[in-house]
Design a protein around this nucleic acid. Structure first.
Ligand SMILES: [Mn+2]
Ligand SMILES: [Mn+2]
Ligand SMILES: [Mn+2]
Ligand SMILES: [Mn+2]
Lengths: 217, 217
DNA sequence: TAAAAAATTTAGACTTATCTAAAATATGAA
DNA sequence: TTCATATTTTAGATAAGTCTAAATTTTTTA
């Protein structure tokens, strides 16, 4: 088995690897709030275990074995987040830190039964896909709300920023997963967006918020 | 906060302290499968944190602060065991190791909501009392089945041995928590016991089994 | 294409938790 | 009450994971 630190590195490399072919030491250090020298030490260890492809100074990618572990941890993270929100009535902005601990509970059977208990949910409270017990999942085509044009509509299906303040703001504005929205105006000056939520409520959001809200068309 | 190792030591000292006023270094070492010298090191650390009362060569007791932490961990352990059995349909002999990991999830609010979600259960799957959110619980008066006399009856309410083989054996014999039993015979030669379970099934158990089954009168 | 700057790695140190072997203390039997 | 034995503690090592500071390699820029 792998240590908690190893699991966190693998998960981190996986996430960073989504929008970069190769992941650099400094990226990992920034993401894990650690120092580059610590990262180098761990990369050697993970390479020895054949969980990453690593050559000095050249960055890393996950091996198949490493990716499998990373996806397993993400599966657990998202299933526990779903559990916390759906069964224990936490808000979507409260669950991430707890899931960061729970994702390291090792039993495979536990997570599979948890999955079954909740009816095999496909998405976590933030709209992120939950891998099945074979590690398979599909990433739906989502685009930032900021790329929509006036009169275009879509469904809120994910967020790019998972921090509490952002999620709390969205909740207050009723900009939650599953809501249908229609763009009513785009202000040229600051690229802020006016939109209607599910036919009734009309609101106005900044460019930054629009950039971090993901829409399915 | 306390480390995983510290939590395990506190819990261990708590359990050993139930039937001994003072807990010795060697007892802890045996219970945690570690060496006496490692225990001494940790005892110093826990004493520095004012979680135990410790004087060299004299054994330890928990301080109030230490006991509070220990009971909190036991609360989490038993609530997660209850969850695993009642919600995820694990057997009572399968849940201990998972709960050993889950008991270290730190969020107090999580455990309190879990408690509420399950309807504030009073006992875990092995009959052990679950402390409430203030750490209060009462230990019912239980006696080993081996102390009963012929024709005496009682209710199976706990076990002294929590290992899988024993629990599996009990399950197979239908000697599970809540079952009413009546002693029908005690064999003088080997102190084995014949008993009736809930009016119908008649079985025969060894002295050792009778010693490890706890009965409420 | 050769410096300068940035990124990465190495060297050496620290903390936590563990170990073995040796020393100190307590206990209990003669 | 003394000495043999058991218990406990100390001393010194080790492994994991982290850090700072220095050295090395890569990348950028002039
Ligand atoms: Mn999360
Ligand atoms: Mn999430
Ligand atoms: Mn248990
Ligand atoms: Mn139990």
């Amino acid at each position: 088995m792998n240590t908690l630190a190893e699991e966190n590195y693998l998960k981190c490399i996986y996430h960073l690897g989504i929008d970069a072919a190769i992941v650099s030491t400094n990226q990992i250090a920034a993401s894990l709030n650690t120092k580059a020298s610590s990262v180098t030490d761990m990369l050697k260890k993970l390479a020895d275990k054949a969980l990453i492809n690593y050559t000095r100074y050249q960055g890393v990618t996950l091996t198949q074995a490493g990716e499998k572990i990373a996806v397993g941890i993400i599966r657990k993270h998202r299933l526990w987040e779903y559990f916390l929100v759906e069964k224990l009535n936490f808000k979507w902005d409260q669950v991430h830190d707890m899931a960061e601990e729970m994702e390291h509970i090792s039993s495979q059977e536990l997570v599979d039964r948890l999955d079954e208990f909740m009816g095999f949910p496909k998405h976590d409270p933030h709209g992120d896909p939950i891998p099945d017990c074979n590690g398979r999942f599909k990433t739906p085509e989502l685009i930032p709300l900021s790329t929509l044009v006036v009169n275009q509509c879509g469904v809120i299906s994910g967020v790019r920023d998972h921090t509490s303040p952002f999620l709390q703001y969205l909740e207050k504005q009723q900009l939650t997963i599953g809501k249908k929205i229609t763009i009513t105006d785009i202000i040229e000056y600051d690229h802020s967006v006016a939109l209607k939520i599910e036919t009734d409520k009309e609101i106005h959001i900044s460019r930054e918020v629009a950039n971090n809200l993901l829409i399915a068309l």
